[in-house]
Nucleic acid binder design. Structure first.
Lengths: 338, 338
DNA sequence: CTGAAAGCGCTAACAG
DNA sequence: CTGTTAGCGCTTTCAG
């Protein structure tokens, strides 16, 4: 049996409440002698207060949770690092869960975390629990990150995805590319993907380029599937000279497929990606990308959530924080000249 | 105020205990009619049982936690995926924490998780809380992953690191490399690193190669530091023809440094790494590595922990599970011929 | 400055 | 088949 506040009180020769005061830093009404004795007993008995009991009574857990859509995505881990640093600084605990791109898992995790009474939730949603999360956000502080869901009235941290697509297309055009194909994961209902696609369409049009049938390929990011798409594309007469990967997983998969087809980047085909990641500069050629400030976004999401929790004003109008993406030119679009 | 079991009981016209039975699946002693009525009321009121109260009483949380040393390391995320799948299948919850390579953070997280009464812990330890974790493991099921700590008597899932080093050296020798330098992070007190270094030393000796002063560089994995190390090494008369990176972070950093110095891999210098990662094949040249079965290790760690929890036999002799690493030859050691 | 008592939401005997 | 009761370990008035 674990040692409880009772055991400590007994051994220290005081009452439970005195121990409780001690635990909660209310030393004013306590002799220094008592205080020191309690400290000694706690250390000696290795007493660790039961957070379940404490939280049950206090109705706060001092814990927030972040649910990421896919922990294998470097985007997620970087966001997490930012959120973590913010929580630590604020004396809050952060626990992490991975939805693994599975809406059912996402929902289960939200359920579990709520039943554990977390004080708030940062969700990088899969995008398929909107109605449910909307319900949740009415009673519990929620901050959405990366993916906006208009029907959910809650604080959101996102990136200007449309601007990112413009950045990519502008860059490609500057380097002389006329025929650009964008590869995206299924984008319906997932705001950043939709905005990236829409931004791409608009950017093409601004540059007088047509958004023809093969300008957008919606596909899973599996290597074999991409190989066949790319192969087909490259055999056409009006074949693309550049590929735009809508996120880092897709970009990596495109590069894998290109290698498999023995296409040389950027000579045979240029590649630009949305999302930066640590080893993008290590690839050969280093991959040109449109980067998002992931760490800052994570930090901001946590800060926003903590503020919301502290204020207790769940019904106050939600804020939308939008970060601007940035072009990171490297070598994969033929930047050095051909 | 959240809805409680009392509210549900009242509305359903039964007692708390009946609701409790319902929640815990004890339907035997309950009319079908009652059962359905309760279900309806719960759905209607959106009742979500308070896990704090439940766990406080039951003394089990049905939750285990995994603390990884560094979530930015692909090794960690892959291990997590394995652990997750295992937990899900067993109906247990998994929560994640990131020690961020900081022993103080690691300790804080363990403290927090214990106070939250998690049923068990998977720890990829930073290696600097041994005494503390040993204490913890006496009362709480703990499984160590990746890093063994002999003084802690608990289940451990690791890889045969020494064999991995042999694999690397053998491969390099087969390709004609005579002068190999290993780059490692500070390895004292971190078992896999120590074993990799020791295995490397032994392998060199087996091949009649000397373990001279510059055969092992112990350093942080920061690009600028590596640049200066590598630069110095390459200017020597007996300069290395191959570099062995002791983990993936180090290998990536070595490659970064090599690029910066405009060294061509493998012509100027071959590179082999310990740890595989998803985009290793995407680099140019694709990086040859010694891979560990990370997903399987995560799965095994979780399974072992759950078994230990179920058995309740904390004092039963700990098991040590060792996986064998595997050589994944690609192109960074001059595999195709020079 | 310290202690007694009530109760957070739930479970688990045990009666009925 | 259902209800009563006594806690789980802690916090929090409110007396003394």
């Amino acid at each position: 049996m674990a040692v409880t506040i009772n055991d400590v009180a007994l051994k220290a020769g005081v009452s439970k409440s005195t121990i409780s005061c001690y635990l909660n830093g209310r030393f004013e009404s306590m002799s220094l002698e008592t205080r020191e004795r309690i400290a000694a007993v706690i250390a000696e008995m290795e007493f660790r207060p039961n957070a379940l009991a404490r939280s049950l009574k206090q109705k706060r857990t001092h814990t927030i949770a972040a649910i990421v859509a896919n922990i294998l995505n470097p985007f997620s881990t970087s966001v997490i690092r930012g959120a973590e640093d913010c929580c630590k600084q604020a004396g809050m605990n952060l626990i992490l869960c991975n939805a693994d791109d599975d809406p059912a898992k996402e929902k289960e995790y939200v359920e579990m975390l709520l039943s554990k009474q977390v004080d708030g939730l940062i969700i990088n949603t899969t995008g398929f629990n909107n109605h449910y999360i909307k319900d949740v956000s009415i009673h519990t502080p929620v901050v959405l990150i990366d993916r906006k869901v208009p029907e959910i009235q809650c604080d959101t941290v996102a990136v200007n995805s449309s601007a990112g697509s413009h950045l990519a297309v502008d860059h490609l055009r500057k380097l002389g590319h006329q025929n650009i194909t964008m590869f995206t994961l299924p984008y319906k209902g997932i705001s950043p993907r939709e905005e990236r696609v829409e931004g791409f369409r608009k950017a093409l049009s601004l540059h007088g380029l047509s958004f023809h049938l093969d300008a957008l390929i919606e596909t899973e990011a599996a290597e074999d599937v991409l190989v066949s798409h790319l192969d087909r594309l490259m055999k056409q007469v009006g074949r693309p000279s550049a590929i735009f990967g809508a996120n880092n997983l897709m970009t990596m998969a495109v590069i894998k497929a290109a290698k498999q087809l023995r296409l040389v980047i950027p000579d045979d085909i240029a590649v630009i990606g949305f999302d930066d990641w640590e080893w993008a500069p290590l690839m050969e050629p280093p991959v040109t990308v449109v980067a998002q400030p992931t760490y800052a976004m994570g930090e901001k999401a946590a800060a926003t959530l903590l503020k919301r929790i502290k204020s207790g004003r769940l019904n106050k109008k939600p804020v939308l924080i939008v970060y601007e993406p940035e072009l990171v030119p490297r070598k994969s679009c033929g930047e050095g000249g051909r």
